[in-house]
Amino acid sequence: MPQVTVEGKGTFEVEEGKKLVLALEDNGIDILHRCGGNAKCTTCRCEVLAGEPGPIGEAEQEVRERRGIEEDHIRLSCQIRVQSDLTVKPIRTASAEGLDAGPRPVD
């Protein structure tokens, strides 16, 4: 099984193909996902520090362009299916922003 390392939080195994946003949430990382994992809001952004998150799909590319996200290493965790080991740093968390995480994304 792939391993996901979250900077400053630890490492955990993730079922291959699981959405990164769900892997984070299921392992105690309070990542924001205000649109419920639909590639609309960009609150679930992560900085990919190491590993291969896979290609950027059409929905993610559209919202990245709309929101001015140009850095290749900044990705939406709701659009990444974990296929291999990754090291990430969540950019926005519910606790840091004093918000409810949002509706749980579907798998």
Rank of each mutant, 00 (worst) to 15 (best):
L32G: 07
L49C: 12
G36N: 10
S95I: 02
I56M: 03
C78N: 08
D85V: 02
K19V: 03
T42V: 15
S84N: 12
K40F: 09
Q83L: 07
K89Y: 07
R45G: 03
D72C: 00
L20F: 08
A59T: 10
C78W: 04
D107H: 06
E70P: 00
I56P: 00
R66P: 01
H33S: 14
G10F: 07
C41T: 10
C41D: 10
K9A: 15
E52K: 12
Q79C: 14
G37M: 05
L99K: 06
A94V: 10
P103H: 04
L49I: 15
L22V: 02
E62H: 09
Q61T: 01
R66H: 13
T11D: 02
Q3D: 13
G10K: 06
A101P: 13
R67S: 14
A59M: 14
Q83E: 15
A59Y: 09
R66D: 14
V21L: 05
V6A: 02
K40W: 05
S84T: 13
A50L: 08
E60F: 03
R45E: 09
T5K: 07
M1H: 09
P53M: 11
V48E: 09
H73R: 15
R66I: 12
D30S: 07
D72W: 02
T93C: 03
I91N: 06
D85S: 04
Q61G: 08
I31K: 10
D100I: 04
T11G: 01
E47V: 13
T5H: 07
E47H: 14
E71Q: 13
V6M: 03
A101H: 02
G37H: 05
D100P: 00
G37F: 00
T42G: 05
R92N: 13
K18I: 00
G36W: 05
E70C: 00
T42P: 01
Q3L: 04
C78E: 06
G102M: 04
K89S: 15
V63Y: 05
I69M: 03
V88F: 06
C46S: 08
I91E: 14
C41E: 10
D26V: 05
V88Y: 03
V14Q: 02
Q79A: 14
Q61R: 14
I91C: 13
G54I: 01
R34A: 13
L20G: 10
